[in-house]
């Protein structure tokens, strides 16, 4: 097991390094000036002095300086919001995105798995058909549609939740639900397929022959096996949910991390952009490793193969 962990960690580091190199190349290639803020043009010597100050006048230099800082978890200054450091911005926005993302995955799991199980157990019933319709809708409808609809219906018409923003617990449910829907749809689909496979397997027949009740067979025998593909879906999905869905944040006006990717690119803010990308890729790699470990822990057949 430790062997696998070490191998995965090394592979992960290599991945992050490649991502850093590629992103950096793109960042320094796009035209545009990070220091230009308003309508006035900055004089060239001020600009070059600022570039020198931040080690940005030489790309190689900046590459290594930034990397050195990044390893110490210091992503340097940001030029769009000059009073803040990248660290402060990421530290302020990452927990917000994480709480929405984790809450969304929790909802997706807690609602999606039972629906998937029920629809597999009662195939072709009205429950199954409505579940399949839900899957289709959840995957097809874009989040800005569902998010805006929820915002208007619940926030404005029913007045049950605040209209966007962040700060109290009541700001959490709507964006979390919106974000959970596409994931929920996939989880329902995976669980349903996994359950149908598991329920037709021999060991289910053995369990029934032992005298286990139908409920026990479904939840204690079939489901653990059916959930394994869901688990491997969960890894990258959680990373994606956690690092901020730009669309959900935009619709609900939430100061999360997703917007920093987009805004930093548009504002030519290299520090924030690279910082956000590094944080995202680290989270993605970490979640994948965690899922691999969990999978190996839960399915003994896998750890054999490693």
């Amino acid at each position: 097991m430790t062997r696998m962990l070490v191998r995965r960690l090394l592979a992960g580091l290599l991945t992050i390094a490649c991502i850093y190199a590629i992103t950096f190349t793109m960042v320094v290639s796009i035209p545009g000036n990070p220091f230009q803020q308003g309508q006035h043009r900055l004089s060239s010597d001020v600009e070059s002095a600022l570039l020198a100050r931040y080690h940005m006048d030489n790309n190689w230099l900046y590459f290594w300086e930034f990397l050195r800082g990044a390893v110490r978890l210091d992503f340097g200054p940001t030029f769009t919001y000059a009073d803040w450091t990248c660290n402060q911005i990421i530290a302020a926005s990452l927990p917000i995105s994480m709480s929405i993302g984790l809450a969304a995955m929790l909802i997706a799991l807690m609602v999606g798995v039972p629906i998937g199980v029920t629809s597999a157990v009662r195939r072709h019933s009205w429950l199954d058909i409505s579940a399949t319709t839900l899957i289709l809708t959840g995957i097809s409808l874009p989040t800005f549609v569902t998010g805006s609809a929820l915002l208007i219906a619940v926030g404005v018409k029913l007045q049950l939740a605040p209209v966007g923003g962040w700060g109290t617990l009541s700001h959490l449910p709507l964006p979390a639900i919106t974000l959970s829907l596409p994931f929920m749809a996939y989880i329902v689909r995976l669980t349903r397929a996994g359950m149908i496979d598991a329920l037709s397997a021999d060991f289910v027949r053995t369990a029934i022959a032992k005298g286990a009740s139908r409920q026990r067979v479904i939840w204690r025998h079939a489901l653990p096996v059916a959930l394994l593909p869901v688990l491997s879906f969960l890894g990258p999905a959680t990373a994606q949910a956690v690092t901020g869905s730009f669309v959900v944040e935009k619709v609900f006006g939430i100061p999360g991390m997703g917007q920093h990717f987009v805004n930093a690119a548009l504002n030519r803010d290299p520090g924030l952009l690279l910082g956000a990308v590094l944080v995202f890729s680290t989270l993605l790699v970490a979640f994948n490793i965690v899922v691999d470990l969990l999978y190996a822990a839960l399915d003994p057949r896998i750890s054999e193969a490693l």
Partner: peptide, 13 residues
């Protein structure tokens, strides 16, 4: 409020 429509809705409320 980066989403100006949402800020208008919040204003209405």
């Amino acid at each position: 409020h980066e989403n100006v429509s949402a800020s208008i809705m919040a204003y209405e409320r």
